[in-house]
Nucleic acid binder design. Structure first.
Length: 882
RNA sequence: GCGAGAGUGGCGGAAUGGUAGACGCGCCAGACUUAGGAUCUGGUGCCUCCGGCGUGGGGGUUCGAGUCCCCCCUCUCGCACCA
């Protein structure tokens, strides 16, 4: 151990030791209880950014902590290596995705190692490896056999920028989530996964995830959108058309249904349309097909529609009601047709007003004034009591919903049913850098699965990437030109590739068995390691990735590959790393050195920040660090200046894991300073360190000064706090704060016997050295999860055997966490008036007596009658006077 | 509109219903200096400072509320014509 702290010297050395001794390798046959820590694997873009450092460090603390606690920890890492960015980059510079990705993976792996993350690299995987994606293909075929995959022709979200089909989840406000270009509707044949078949389970099993953030489960619940209601059939009058089916959650309002509305795309529209209306209906349908769906279905868009000329019979009132089509009805939800109850639905009300359709009140509020159809100002959408509803009049809404649905079922005209917002998952992408879909299109045999023995269907090493909508693989004849496995005739491979979200649905199980060439993974290994105990990742994956991930797991369960229902026990969604960004109205985003008006610490001074190019005031915001916003700080630069341990420490100390952290150079310097001060503490006792190794026995407080007894108690208390903060609270910031407090208290260690050749005979001196050893060992071990390189160096300096990261997590003595004397607050009428130093075990009577005896307290009691005294042992005394 | 979360010093942030502001940054004062990313020691919520006031605002429960209950305001994120 050197006199001075040189992180750049010690960090690579310890990384090498960890590597050589394979200390982070997880053994499948280890008898200790398992703990699986997983972080969402990165897309290997080449450069690690601060957000990555943060997630991976959070996971790493838990992995290192659990390892020290005696768990058999699995902490793997891999690369989500397929996807658009490599393809887009190839368009620019011609480097084939495979080549670029391999190089990027090597670079990112090196950067991850430089952060000191404790991964078992023997299990590394990359999704672009044919030995990985062959199992995507295998799953696809398995799902095909189970009718979980089907070919469909559907209106797809077509991104005009990426020139590819997007999932509904990838469309935000009518634009591509990735490139922000407009998304339009286009009819495309594609493959879809029946995630909707699992909709019920995906909702119900959220109850089995108490250790997931509520906002994630809430978002999933919302996205799946389970909605209970009834299907009702409305016979069509004077047209040779089967009855129209509608879905409603308000069957209780059916007596108020005075018209119907269909989506413009509803298949019955043409057959319903009367000759007089044909031109208008056709024009409306035509116009709707051209309006962007997101705009058309935006809540702010005005409702409009046309009458088809047809009418239906309300099955409950027997009345004839007109059938309209309108922009606000969605073809894909429910049946694409709705019964309109203008008195009790605001949309229907507005539509009825606009087109002078009848409004009829059939629900009365439980209290207050009666609603009158003629004078209704807005829809009454709440539950109430039915009126003018035949036999159901007088029933509550809830009762009527049940009865009416039951009546429909009895009459063979519908019945209770459930609808979901969730749609099936379209997985076809017109892209090169993805998993080829293992299907062969044969003119004679139709769609033919690639035989299992022919997997993997490999991507050709290169394909012409033109950026147009046609799949690149369609231009590689050697790829698509095949003979049909069934009839041997000329056939064509499917030239689409799979959505890359497929890759990340099951990767965590491949880590268990990364070289298995008979199955995606062994069942026994899965039953040993699954589920993941802690999964760390960004909240942006709350819906898509985590929903697909849960879906896939349930499918695997039904295939007999895994044995429980959910893949992840505890989910931790970490906050972003943000910093100030500066946007100039003329020059766009500016870097820190492209603006003026920052103070010495590099923080913006309100209202003073200007663009150094044009002197205009710039817009200052706190945004996620990114290249495009020019507000990123490179982890490498920080490591270079302060070391990886400081980088880690800052990411952990700045805020609790779930919250965003604001980058602060001063904060980083503070963390570095902390490590340097700990180092100085060890350096101060450098000559004594060898002695301490053999002084592991219990500290004899009887021979210690009061200050050192206090320190001894504090060490135990710190062990208690740090353990609890990591394990239960996952609050690393307070754990580190506790370590800082302990360091501050180590001033008391200055009074140590002079270093000598051997152990002193004096029991007092011996006790002091024992305390010193206990303190330095505890500090080193508690630092190990957070600043692992530092901890190794300190541990080695202490002459510790083995590696710090392999030591058992230090235990504490609960009895030794308590001070003998404590500070007791004394309040008079709830206001603090004095503090007393009392023995810890002082009882109520003693506390009250001491409080009353105190001059500072007496002043407030003078001339007042004491009405009540509350004494809480160990805490406070509150004297109530009146 | 619906759902989730957040509002505490100059700043990041702490506080099982029991001394609000741990810890860090910044700032102030002092010490020291083989000028070093200096370091060390002490101090640092606000005010009209023997006392008051303070956790977005207003009520309530309690001996005692940042914490529990009710109402309101602001902000962030997600969803949103889903019948």
């Amino acid at each position: 151990m050197d006199e001075k702290y040189h992180p750049r010297k010690i960090e690579p050395e310890w990384q090498q030791v960890w590597d050589e001794r394979e200390v982070f390798r997880a053994r499948d046959d280890d008898p200790r209880p398992k703990y699986y820590v997983l972080e969402m694997f990165p897309y290997p873009s080449g450069k690690l950014h601060m957000g990555h450092v943060r997630v991976y460090t959070i996971g790493d603390v838990m992995a290192r902590f659990k390892r020290m606690q005696g768990f058999n920890v699995l902490h793997p890492m891999g690369f989500d290596a397929l996807g658009l960015p490599a393809e887009n980059a190839a368009l620019k510079d011609g480097v084939p995705p495979a080549k670029r990705t391999r190089a990027n993976i090597d670079s990112v792996r090196a950067q991850l190692k430089a952060v000191g993350l404790s991964y078992d690299w023997t299990r590394e995987l990359a999704t672009c490896d044919p030995e990985y994606y062959r199992w995507n293909q295998w799953f696809f075929l398995q799902m095909l056999e189970r009718d979980l995959v089907y070919r469909r022709k559907s209106l797809a979200n077509w991104c005009t920028g990426c020139l590819t089909v997007l999932a509904n989840e990838q469309v935000v406000d009518g634009c591509c989530e990735r490139c922000k270009s407009a998304v339009v509707q286009r009819e495309m044949p594609d493959w879809a996964l029946r995630i909707t078949r699992y909709a019920d389970q995906l909702v119900d099993d959220l109850a089995k995830l108490p250790r997931w953030p509520e906002r994630v489960t809430a978002m999933q619940r919302n996205w799946i959108g389970r909605s209970e209601g009834a299907e009702l059939h409305f016979p069509v009058l004077d047209r040779p058309v089967p009855p129209l089916k509608v879905f409603t959650t308000r069957a209780d309002t059916v007596f108020g249904a005075t018209y119907m509305v269909l989506a413009p795309e509803h298949p019955a529209v043409a057959a319903l349309t009367g000759d007089a209306q044909r031109a208008a209906v056709r024009a409306f349908v035509e116009r709707m097909s051209r309006v962007d769906k997101a705009v058309r279905t935006d809540a702010g868009t005005e409702k409009e529609g046309v009458w088809t000329g047809a009418s239906a019979r309300n099955p409950f009132t027997g009345e004839a009601i007109p059938i309209w089509i309108a922009n606000f009805v969605l073809a894909e939800y429910g049946t694409g047709a709705v019964m309109s109850v203008p008195a009790h639905d605001q949309r229907d009300f507005e539509f009825a007003r606009r087109y002078a359709l009848p409004i009829r009140v059939v629900i009365q509020p439980p209290a207050g004034a009666r609603l009158e159809s003629a004078s209704l100002a807005e829809a009454w959408a709440e539950d109430g009591v039915l009126c003018d509803s035949g036999a159901h009049t007088g029933k509550s809404s809830a009762q009527a919903r049940q009865d009416i649905a039951a009546a429909a079922r009895a009459a063979g005209q519908g019945g209770p049913t459930v609808n979901f917002h969730l749609r099936d998952w379209g997985v076809s992408r017109q892209r090169y850098w993805g998993t080829p879909i293992p299907i062969i299109h044969c003119e004679r045999c139709g769609l033919v699965p690639v035989p299992y023995g022919d997997l993997p269907v490999r991507l050709p090493p290169e394909a012409p990437l033109t950026g147009t909508g046609e799949p690149p693989l369609a231009k590689v004849e050697a790829f698509w030109k095949v003979s049909c496995p069934r009839c041997g005739g000329a056939a064509r491979r499917d030239t689409d590739t799979m959505d890359t979200f497929v890759d990340s649905t099951w990767y965590f199980l491949r880590y268990l068995d990364p070289h298995n060439d008979q199955a995606p993974f062994g069942k026994e290994l899965a039953s040993h390691w699954a589920p993941v105990d802690l999964y760390v990742g960004g909240p942006e994956h709350a819906v898509m990735h985590l929903l697909y991930f849960r879906f896939w797991y349930k499918v695997m369960r039904d295939m007999g590959l895994v044995t429980n229902d959910e893949p992840v026990d505890r989910l931790l969604t970490q906050g972003m790393v943000v910093d100030h960004s500066y946007r100039c109205p003329e020059h766009g985003y500016r870097a820190k050195d492209g603006v003026t008006g920052l103070d010495e610490a590099g923080k913006p001074v309100a209202g003073e920040v200007r663009c150094s190019a044009c002197q205009r005031e710039v817009k200052v915001a706190l945004e996620k660090m990114s290249k495009s916003k020019l507000n990123g700080v490179s982890p490498e630069a920080v490591s270079e200046a302060y070391g990886a341990d400081t980088l880690r420490l800052f990411c952990l100390f700045a805020a609790p894991p779930e919250k965003d952290i604001e980058w602060s150079d001063a904060g980083v310097a503070g963390c570095f300073n902390f490590l340097r001060r700990v180092w100085a503490l060890y350096a101060q006792h450098l000559e004594r360190l060898p002695l301490l190794r053999d002084l592991a026995g219990p500290v004899d407080e009887a021979h210690l000064s009061p200050a050192l007894v206090s320190l001894h108690r504090l060490i135990h208390r710190t062990l208690q706090r740090v353990t609890r903060d990591i394990e239960q609270e996952v609050q690393f910031n307070t754990a580190i704060a506790a370590l800082m407090e302990l360091l501050n208290a180590c001033k008391a260690l200055e009074d140590m016997p002079a270093p000598s050749a051997g152990l002193p005979d004096d029991p007092a001196a011996l006790a002091r050295l024992r305390l010193l050893g206990f303190c330095l060992r505890s500090l080193a071990l508690m630092l190990s999860p957070f600043a692992p390189h530092f901890a190794e160096e300190a541990w080695a300096g202490l002459g510790g055997r083995g590696l710090a990261c392999e030591q058992p997590w230090p235990s504490f003595d609960p009895a030794a966490t308590l001070e003998d004397r404590i500070t007791v607050a004394v309040q008079v009428n709830g206001k603090l008036r004095a503090t007393l130093d009392l023995p810890r075990d002082a009882d109520r009577t003693a506390m009250e007596a001491a409080a009353r005896a105190d001059a500072r307290v007496q002043k407030w009691l003078e001339g007042k009658a004491v009405r009540k005294v509350i004494a809480v042992p160990g805490r406070l005394v509150n004297i109530v006077v009146g």
